[in-house]
């Protein structure tokens, strides 16, 4: 099941010429991951840890392609040291982050990384654009694409749990 904004997001990413979709399996990005796997015109790359996505996207840019890293907020912590590559090389970098440890979270193990996701990214020079309302999705994704690939800067779009819905725990 997917909301309209998820399909719209896929369309915007493809329209921008993004053809490397890197991910670690994640419920919040399920639609984008499935769409990229089913799309014969893109590379859907299954990572073993999110930090591989940082190297991969820099390599894509080196070769003239565009990529996006789809990850959960917990994966942000795995990326920190490799973000040195993005900053040192002034590489464009676009990541969409499905938040955990956020609005309505019921698993306390998710809180430490979820609550520190944005400050940690900002400390590493990654600009964060947060979305909590479906109506905000298209223009925010569009803005992030422009900032990442035209201004060649690192940008993270944080998809909040208000938007995604919190995972249910009984």
């Amino acid at each position: 099941m997917s909301a309209d904004w998820q399909e719209e997001t896929y369309g915007l990413l493809r329209q921008a010429g993004i053809d490397q979709f890197a991910f670690v399996p994640d419920a919040g990005h399920d639609h984008l991951i499935k769409r990229s796997i089913a799309d014969p015109d893109v590379h859907a790359i299954a990572l073993t840890t999110e930090e591989e996505g940082v190297g991969l996207l820099a390599g894509a840019h080196l070769g003239g392609s565009r990529g996006v890293l789809l990850m959960q907020s917990s994966g942000v912590g795995n990326c920190i040291n490799l973000l040195s590559l993005i900053r040192a090389g002034r590489f464009p970098f676009l990541t969409l982050i499905s938040m955990r440890g956020d609005f309505g979270e019921g698993n306390p193990w998710q809180m430490p990384m979820g609550q520190s996701t944005q400050p940690v990214l900002e400390a590493c020079d990654v600009t964060c654009l947060r979305i909590d309302e479906p109506s905000e999705v298209p223009r925010t994704i569009d803005a992030a694409i422009t900032m990442a690939f035209n201004s060649e800067m690192p940008v993270a779009v944080l998809l909040g749990q208000k938007l995604l819905g919190a995972k249910k725990f009984s």
Binding site: L47, G55, L56, G59, H61, L62, G63, G67, S84, L85
Partner: peptide, 21 residues
């Protein structure tokens, strides 16, 4: 393209480059 840090990223960078080219 040579690394001076970001230890552990060379192989994933090669993968992204190989897919792009």
């Amino acid at each position: 393209f040579g690394f001076g840090g970001a230890m552990g990223a060379a192989t994933s960078m090669g993968l992204g480059l190989a897919l792009a080219q």
